[in-house]
């Protein structure tokens, strides 16, 4: 039950993050919206692992009756967290490189400058 609720909430979180990525004009806000999407999907995996029980999967002796959480989604999503951290760092670095040259974070202005340079 807990798992299902968490899964539905995290999918709505993904929706919110994606809309934020489309609507915001500021580059930093776009990156943060991507962060919301990634956090939501990480939360969803916790939800998946909570379907079989919510006791942490650290076994003490006998495990016949206890409803342990499923360890596999929890373990794989550690990798997902590391990857989203790496992506966040890289995107901020790119944003800083762009800002240092053009002194703006507005996406439309940046793209206008680039299209003018192309000609």
């Amino acid at each position: 039950m807990t798992g299902t609720i968490v899964i539905y909430f995290s999918i709505s979180g993904m929706l919110v993050g994606t809309i934020g990525m489309i609507l915001s004009k500021d580059l930093i806000k776009k990156i943060l919206s991507l962060g919301i999407v990634e956090t939501s999907i990480n939360l969803m995996y916790t939800g998946i692992s909570a379907r079989s029980g919510i006791i942490p999967p650290i076994v003490s002796g006998d495990f016949s009756n206890a409803f342990y959480a499923d360890p596999i989604p929890q373990a794989v999503i550690i990798t997902g967290i590391v990857i989203s951290f790496a992506l966040l760092c890289l995107s901020l670095v790119f944003a800083i490189i762009i800002y240092n040259r053009y002194h703006t974070m507005n996406v439309e202005t940046i793209e206008m400058i680039f299209e003018r340079e192309e000609r």
């Binding site: 580059l27 991507l34 999407v37 990634e38 995107s91 790119f94 762009i98 680039f114």
Partner: peptide, 18 residues
């Protein structure tokens, strides 16, 4: 490290990670 390249890879990053 040209700004154009940074912009191209930032655009790629946002779309591909979504």
């Amino acid at each position: 490290k040209k700004p154009r390249q940074a912009w191209a890879s930032l655009k790629y990053l946002l779309l591909s990670s979504l």
